[in-house]
């Protein structure tokens, strides 16, 4: 029996990116929302992401690591094209990561500076990631049109992150902060809608191959649940946000879970569009893959370790379940 190793690795990498976008998405979003919160609220917001952000960011390392080890040719081709936004994103990730630690340990007078850097880093990370998404969707070519489009997707993704961040706070906070988060979420939903819409409309326009994949019969029929389910989820989130908070904190988990599902659907649609290309319309996953014997070695490790990662990530989320209070090293 021969396994389709490049496909398996593309699936693993795709899953890692998706998990990253959801998990780091919410903690980036919390950072993006900083200017709207009071200093006390900021401490609680940080407490709600404190035990998780290290592990969340590690999914990015896994995703980019899989690209690096399983598709070495594509790693070089994509990252040299995205040299500048990647560098900006990395500096932004550095700033927010360390600001997170420093703000808790520095004297009170310095806290404002670190809070600013935490916000700035989170914001710039969202913008550059959205920008790179835009350039990627446009086939990794730098024209003024594409840059314009990428700037838009940058804004949309940043707002989408702030939205999922607000959805996380709705679940992890109570009282005034929760009420505030509900209004933040209501104000941020447009980012998700426009972001998904922009990418969904632009992708088939850029490539006739992708256009045919979606808009030919009978594919259109069996693909139709994807946009329909997305629309239904958006409706559900909107409906819930109008009614929250409910007695006994019912349904406070729903916006976050529904948004995660929405991200997953959008991502599945993108994956379907680009498959089998990893560098859009230029290099397929089969052309970019490393040697089969090396992929086997990695696969064995991945199959042992990824279930473990899932298990203890779940354990960690279970330990720190419930409403976030002040963060303490106890």
């Amino acid at each position: 029996m021969t396994l389709d190793l490049p496909f398996i690795f593309a699936a693993l990498m795709g899953t890692s990116i998706l998990v990253y976008v959801i998990l780091d998405g919410f903690d980036l979003g919390v950072g993006i929302l900083f200017p709207f919160a009071t200093p006390d609220e900021r401490d609680r917001m940080v407490a709600s992401i404190g035990p998780f952000w290290d592990a969340n960011e590690t999914w990015l390392v896994l995703a980019i690591g899989l690209l690096l080890v399983a598709f070495p040719v594509a790693h070089g081709a994509i990252l040299t094209q995205l040299y500048l936004p990647v560098t900006l994103m990395l500096i932004a990730l550095i700033l927010r990561g360390v600001a997170f630690e420093f703000r808790a340990k520095a004297p009170a007078g310095h806290k404002r500076t670190w809070d600013f850097l935490f916000w700035f880093g989170s914001m710039l990370t969202g913008l550059t990631q959205g920008f790179m998404l835009g350039i990627y969707v446009m086939g990794l070519a730098w024209t003024w049109w594409h840059i314009g489009f990428a700037l838009l997707t940058g804004v949309f993704l940043t707002v989408a992150y702030s939205f999922i961040g607000a959805a996380w706070i709705i679940h992890k906070a109570d009282g005034a902060l929760q009420a505030k988060a509900i209004t933040w979420a209501r104000d941020g939903l447009w980012g998700v809608v426009l972001g998904m819409g922009a990418v969904s409309l632009a992708t088939p326009y850029v490539s006739t191959r992708i256009f045919d994949k979606w808009f030919s019969w009978p594919q259109m029929l069996w693909l139709s649940p994807l946009p329909l389910a997305s629309a239904a989820l958006i409706g559900l989130v909107w409906w819930t946000l109008r009614r929250l908070p409910l007695d006994g904190d019912r349904l406070s988990w729903l916006p976050f879970v529904a948004t995660s599902a929405l991200f997953a659907l959008g991502f599945a649609g993108m994956a379907y569009s680009f498959f089998p290309y990893i560098v859009p319309e230029a290099i397929t996953i089969y052309e970019a893959a490393a040697a089969p014997e090396s992929l086997w070695i990695i696969l064995i490790g991945a199959l042992i370790v990824i279930p473990m990662i899932a298990a203890y990530s779940a354990f960690s989320y279970f330990i720190f379940r419930g409403k976030a209070t002040a963060l303490s090293y106890e």
Binding site: P51, T58, F320
Partner: peptide
């Protein structure tokens, strides 16, 4: 590739995931 992959898989996650419990989970 495989060496870097094993580094990320076996080690990085072990650290990052249990770090939360180590830092904030004592109680």
């Amino acid at each position: 590739g495989p060496l870097l992959a094993y580094e990320v898989l076996t080690a990085f996650f072990l650290e990052a995931a249990f770090l939360g419990i180590m830092l904030f989970g004592a109680s």
